[in-house]
Design a protein around this nucleic acid. Structure first.
Lengths: 223, 223
DNA sequence: GCCTGTGAACCACTTCACAGCT
DNA sequence: AGCTGTGAAGTGGTTCACAGGC
């Protein structure tokens, strides 16, 4: 028993799951939620895939990493699959997110309704600007950076969004890790160096536009 | 070194280049710009890769898709490689971007300095809110949706950022395509159906947080 | 009939390893 | 010596195709 592997319950196969698989899971979730809103209660891997521009086989293979959720001859029950995918992604429970940096982007994140819909809630915010510290924006209290460790550990927050200028991103990231953050969503256009135990997702908006620019200039076919 | 190749078209190899390659090109560009700011004028594929957590071979293979930019025994000249990558990505000349949707996120994009740094400039904005139409935000004029076709064609704008609610995203996207947009950066959490000639990049912030949630819950190792 | 789950085949991307240049 | 550029090898991800269940 003690010698049992430490593979998380979600994963059935021994090997880790690629990022490609998990981001498609998020897409399946989004599409299933739309189907439910539109009154559907069943779908198939083929139809789910078509809505997202991928094959049915891909959908089935992705889900097979985590279990058997379908009914041969029938397909998938939307509500049931939503529940399963949320469980896999860990969003069957709400997450509180700490936000650092209340500039334009930070403020947009504070008020972003898409987070709440998927189970994420910005619970606390931090900034260096003395004029903001102590105030409340969108119902969220803004703390000074020196309160980071205590506030984050007190609320047992594990996820943070980093929306500070590039120059201070690494230093703030270090502070967040020190405070106990294990997942970091970085909007600053710099590559952060973090301990392997901390998970990092990068969103660089300029890079996304560069991808578009490249595609347009080279008239690449969509894939 | 070698034939400082004058590349006529960006792509020398016949086959199309994968998204993985082009997004790394953006990372190389970002890192090279940092190196220049820090006073370096040369680097090597090995050092460039290490800064980004990839192998030197990967860096060299990526660049090999577009030409020969290095000097055996020496490495790459930062400024020169920056110029080449910008040319490949199409950002050696400035792009004007149209923004649709001036909510929280839209406003953040209007003021986002990271765009300008990489050669993108939000030139015009559109919204449905009559209170905004005709006003100027961050120096950008806000038009009503009915002006889209004329304004976009008049400025010959090819790229647009879509920051409207999910419910109207498809309809607005259709309008943008009609107006002549060929590259679309979509922030609405829906899968858009667009003609194959239009390039699409999706940014779904909730999905990014779900990726973090999954990684934290499953204690996956970083890759 | 329709549809899932899955081994096998296929394809693409990454890493290796080295010839050749500086 | 150091480093690039590149064929070859290796790895991982996607698609195929079909057995089996509804």
């Amino acid at each position: 028993m003690a010698a049992r592997s430490q593979i998380p319950a979600n994963l059935l196969s021994g090997h880790p799951v690629s990022k490609a698989v998990t981001s498609r899971l998020s897409l399946y979730l989004r599409e299933l939620q739309r189907l439910v809103r539109d009154g559907h209660d069943r779908t198939s891997s083929k139809r789910l895939g078509e809505a997202l521009g991928i094959t049915g086989a891909q959908v089935r293979k992705d889900l097979a990493n985590f279990g058997q959720f379908g009914y041969p001859g029938v397909g998938y029950r939307c509500q049931e699959l939503i529940g399963q995918i949320k469980k896999i992604l860990g969003t069957n429970r709400p997450w509180t997110v700490a936000l650092v940096g209340i500039g334009n982007l930070g403020r947009a994140l504070l008020g972003y309704r898409g987070f709440i819909q998927q189970g994420f809630h910005v619970g606390v915010a931090f900034d260096v600007d003395p004029a903001m510290i102590g105030s409340t924006i969108e119902g969220i209290e803004v703390y000074g950076m020196e309160r980071m460790a205590s506030v984050i550990s007190h609320h047992e927050i594990k996820l943070a969004a980093l929306a500070v200028p590039s120059g201070s991103a690494q230093q703030v990231a270090d502070q967040l890790v020190e405070a106990g953050i294990t997942g970091l969503l970085n909007f600053a256009p710099v590559t952060l160096a973090l301990p392997g135990s901390v998970h990092l997702v990068e969103v660089d908006l300029a890079i996304e536009l560069e991808q578009l620019s490249f595609a347009v200039v080279n008239r690449q076919q969509k894939n």
